[in-house]
């Protein structure tokens, strides 16, 4: 999420589910207070309603920053970018980052896809950084071997 929400959250706002429920919405736009048993029984809710929204991950990132945990905040910001990516594709991306699973070109394409298709520049940065280190440490797949053996 590049669009940062200027909520001025402090540690006192945690837990958001107790202290700031009005800030919490599902990816489908429902307020968290709409996630009731009645709504479950009447079939109004789908599994999609029980997922976290990228805006919420940004709020949690602000709380992590306010708690002096910059790495945790960065993890939440990468996560916010990943919310929209389908489960199977997320798993595919993870597998592509395993040692010698991808060529340099493969990782470059993955980074581009993250950046352009999914508007995920922070995740793309992580993949580009991996590509640079993998090249230096001989952890890239040989060209043409991309779909073949994936482990050494």
């Amino acid at each position: 999420m590049s669009a940062s929400l200027d909520t001025g959250l402090t540690r006192g706002d945690y837990p958001l589910s107790v202290n700031r429920p009005e800030l919490l919405r599902t990816p489908t736009g429902k307020p968290i207070t709409a996630l009731t048993m009645d709504a479950v029984v009447s079939g109004e809710l789908s599994a999609e309603d029980l997922r976290i929204a990228p805006e919420t991950l940004e709020l949690q990132a602000q709380l992590a920053d306010a708690s002096n945990r910059p790495q945790l905040a960065m993890n939440f910001r990468r996560a916010a970018e990943m919310c929209a990516i389908p489960d199977a594709e997320v798993l595919g991306m993870y597998n592509a980052l395993r040692p010698r699973a991808s060529t340099a070109a493969g990782l470059a394409a993955l980074a581009d896809r993250l950046e352009t298709t999914w508007s995920a520049p922070v995740c793309a940065g992580l993949v580009r950084e991996a590509a640079e280190v993998y090249a230096r440490r001989d952890l890239l797949a040989r060209a043409g071997a991309e779909d073949g053996e994936d482990t050494p």
């Binding site: 976290i52 991950l57 993890n75 939440f76 990468r78 996560a79 916010a80 970018e81 990943m82 919310c83 990516i85 997320v90 798993l91 991306m93 993870y94 980052l97 395993r98 040692p99 995740c123 992580l126 993949v127 950084e129 991996a130 280190v133 993998y134 952890l139």
Partner: peptide, 15 residues
Amino acid sequence: DTPWSKAFLASAYAS
């Protein structure tokens, strides 16, 4: 795995 694949996985869970 590598530290980068595991870091990516960590974010996948949080997402």
